[in-house]
Nucleic acid binder design. Structure first.
Lengths: 243, 243
DNA sequence: ACACTTGTTATACGATCGTCCAATAAGCAA
DNA sequence: TTGCTTATTGGACGATCGTATAACAAGTGT
């Protein structure tokens, strides 16, 4: 879908935290070269043959995939674009991943882990009071780097694979369940009865997802502050009702 | 993305209501021929030259696009696949739409209108009591034909275009605003104060969207009945709180 | 019967797609 | 050093992509 024009948007990057020991990433070290190579081959730049720790290389491919998804969307994310972004030969992608779908799935897992970590960070800064922790957790979902149009592209690309790939569907179910379980713990600490925990967690997850989705999709509809106010109001109602 | 294997899934169809005066649709009249042509050209079937009312043809292309999206997902939705589904030559798509993105946008508008109609139907059957109408409206979002994995593909394909196409972003904003406005009317009838109307509508929309999304994405996580129970509980809280 | 408009077909075109594979370079063991 | 393993390159391959366009068929008005 959408061939040729590319449209290239802004050259913004999805720059979350950087775990793993930064291996030399040509696309970062010499972005000009990479861009010139993409625009047109006036400058024939050869990718340097640099051997990397398999884990690190794998990781750098995943990060490159995330950046391409953020910049060009699912339609513009190809093996070649990812390899170029990683400063690596196209063939290498096939060496580390069974196919591009597998790479997208791994990228989703990675981005999801980073989001998870961001939420945990917010939790750690929230202190010990249960309700404050709950608020911090949901509020963090509406602020960068969690809520952003760039991240949305990764989610959409992943969602589009769920229906046709049973193993990816399983991965989605697991990560959804994990998020909900964490939320159940936070809700339980706020005094919600065990019998109501499941429903409450589903409700909060759905509300947060819905707000996050709309916030990422059209940032003008309402603000992040409004979103977290709405979420807090729902939490108030939930806690006072299903205690 | 995902070339070659096709994976073809089940040959299920997204069959909502059928407005417009059903024009002869070869893909429906002779699905065998269409399928044989797709699988392999052992049977060289020529598309019949049948002139159609422009509006009807346009509409049949939109419906074909919706079916392909539902069956093959965004990745498998191409000009050729749509034309084959509509029983029409590939070139005809370009004659009615500026490009495939425009066709997807039109398809989304059409599907969204059908969903809207389904919700209005539920509203009409709900009688006059404001709260019953509100319940009917949100509950209908969790039952077929609104909540289904097939419809989800159309949404995902549309969402993936929002970021890069400003006019499509505008279309999304308009349809979101329209949904929210309708919800505000229903909420207002239930006695929610004018000052709280906006936030309440955003909250309900987000909750419904989140539940709908998860329900379509992994039907095993919770049931439609559970979803509407959750939504009703939130409505209870909302009405008693922000009256 | 004729010209004219226009919906429709069929194909060509260049680009890009994902995957595969032989050749090459780097590191490591001996 | 020599040999072996393996990460990496770069291009080939066939398929499919979206779009453009010339030829054709069906109406329509005259």
């Amino acid at each position: 879908m959408e061939n040729g024009q590319w449209q290239r948007a802004a050259f913004d990057r999805l720059r979350l935290s950087g775990p793993f020991g930064q291996i030399p990433n040509p696309a970062q070290a010499e972005p000009v070269e990479a861009r010139a190579q993409l625009a047109n081959k006036t400058m024939t730049a050869k990718a340097a043959f640099t051997r990397a720790e398999p884990d690190a290389r794998r990781h750098s491919l995943i990060e490159a995939c995330a950046r391409v998804l953020a910049r060009a969307g699912a339609a513009g994310t190809s093996v070649r674009a990812i390899a170029l972004e990683a400063g690596v030969s196209p063939g290498l992608v096939g060496h580390y991943f069974a196919g591009i779908d597998a790479l997208v799935a791994a990228t989703f897992a990675h981005v999801e882990a980073q989001v998870s970590a961001a939420l945990d960070d917010a939790l750690a800064q929230a202190g010990a009071e249960p309700r404050a922790r709950l608020d911090a957790y949901v509020t963090a979902s509406f602020a960068p780097p969690v809520a952003s149009g760039e991240l949305l592209a990764t989610w959409i690309a992943f969602w589009s694979l769920v229906r046709s790939h049973p193993d990816i569907a399983r991965q989605h179910d697991e990560q959804y369940a994990q998020f909900r379980t964490r939320l159940e713990a936070l809700l339980g600490a706020c005094g919600i009865a065990l019998g109501n925990l499941r429903r409450a967690a589903i409700a909060v997850t759905a509300l947060v997802d819905g707000l996050w989705l709309e916030l990422s999709l059209s940032p003008g509809a309402f603000s992040a502050a409004e979103a977290s106010a709405i979420a807090r109001a729902q939490l108030d109602a939930l806690i006072s009702t299903s205690r």
